[in-house]
Each structure stands twice: as structure tokens, then as C-alpha cells.
Design a protein around this nucleic acid. Structure first.
Lengths: 106, 106
DNA sequence: CTGTTCATTGGCAATTTAGCCAAATGACCA
DNA sequence: TGGTCATTTGGCTAAATTGCCAATGAACAG
């Protein structure tokens, strides 16, 4: 039982880890609006193409996005849009933390 | 504008990063049921106390949990229970990935 | 006061991650 | 065929993360 639940937490951590980077969050956010090719995402993120390509492979391996090749371009697509629900809670944490800071400052 | 949104993704990533570890997910999960002292959590996680203490400080710095000292013990409390909504989506990603694997195996 | 429990911190070695450049591959155009 | 654009991969270094042990400090029982 214990091993099983440990494995489950590891599986979850793997996915969350895939999201735990500003550039990758930016990518996920953009893909939530429309699919995008690597070129577009690279321009948006502002790093080297190779860096962005690696970020995308992290997201793909985690199952967060999938890719679709069309002609010479590769389009990336958000696989599970519920990922965005994530964000509203993360914002709550940020806000709650900000309030704490405020209290401390009093 | 761009810098502002970049800062926002960085803030979000910081919180998500704090969750991106199996032991810390286990802790958050446990704290969602009841507050716990370090001793209890250490036993549950099965690492050294010092390791667990550091995990807790990561979660505290991110604003995910808060601590409350009572006598010689320190209790940890989940600050924003919505964190758990996270998990249902993460499970969706896991399931969707499993289905993909299944398709590939055909 | 002394010994014990609870918890945090410093330090260290091993592992992982990030991001750049250069090279390789594939599609497409002229 | 040659050239160019789009993307991925290998290699490398710098930085961050993990987890253990040892040392420290606070609370408390006797």
C-alpha cells in the first residue's frame, strides 16, 4: 500500500515538475489560447530555439502537450486544458502570501 | 507589459516548484486532512528529520503552508486548500498519458 | 541543573537542470 | 541540386536541488 502511494506521488511530482519553470508556464499559457509552432513560441519566450525545443520536450514527456507535424513545422497543442485551473489556485497562494507580508509589516 | 507578465510567470513557477517533489506532495496531501507536527510528517515521509524540515521550509517560503509553534512542537498547516484541485487535473494528465501509451501499443 | 525530545541550520557530495552553441535532419523552394 | 527555414540533438558549463550527518538551540520532565 505504502509503495503504491509513493509511486503515485512520484508520478504526480513528475508532471508538476514539468510545469515548474517560468518559460514552460508561459508556453502552456499561450497554448491554452491556440496551438503554436516552435518558431512562434521561441519568439514569445525569447530564448534560443534549442532551449525552447527542450522545454517543449519536457512538457511532451510529461504528457502536458502533444505535437503535430505539418509540413516543415511542428505544432504544439495543450493536451489537458484543466491545467489552467492550476493557475487560479496558484494566484490564491500568491495573494495569501502577499497578505501575510502585509500583516507582518504592521 | 512584457516584463510584468514575465514576473508573474516567475512568481507562479516558484510556487509550483515548491510542490514539485514527491515528499512535498505527500506532506501537502497529509496536511489537507489535518495539521501535523514535524515529527509526524517525518515518520510518514520516511526520510531524515532534517530533510523533512527543509522540505517544510520550501513549502513555507512559497506560501503553501504556515507553521505554528506550540510547546516544543511545531505544527504545519495548509494555507490554501485549493491546492488540492491541482491534483485532480494532474490525475487527468496521467490518465491521458496512459491512454496515449495504450494507443501506441496497438 | 541534567538528560531528552523536537526542530532547524550548516556543510558537503551527488545528481539534476538550464541554456547556449554547433551540428545534424527534414521539408520546401528555385 | 543547392540553399534556406524549422526543429531537434549532443555536448558542455554553470547553477540549483537533494539528502544525509553533525552541531546547535528551545522546551520540558525529573
Amino acid at each position: 500500500m505504502k509503495a503504491k502511494s509513493k509511486a503515485r506521488f512520484e508520478a504526480r511530482a513528475k508532471i508538476i515538475k514539468a510545469m515548474a519553470h517560468p518559460a514552460r508556464l508561459m508556453i502552456v499559457d499561450e497554448l491554452s489560447r491556440r496551438e503554436r509552432c516552435v518558431r512562434d513560441l521561441t519568439e514569445m519566450v525569447g530564448s534560443d530555439v534549442s532551449t525552447v525545443s527542450k522545454h517543449l520536450s519536457v512538457l511532451r514527456n510529461a504528457g502536458v502537450v502533444r505535437d503535430e507535424k505539418r509540413g516543415s513545422k511542428v505544432y504544439y497543442i495543450l493536451r489537458t486544458p484543466c491545467i489552467l485551473n492550476f493557475m487560479s489556485c496558484v494566484e490564491t497562494v500568491i495573494k495569501s502570501k502577499a497578505e501575510e507580508q502585509l500583516d507582518l509589516a504592521k
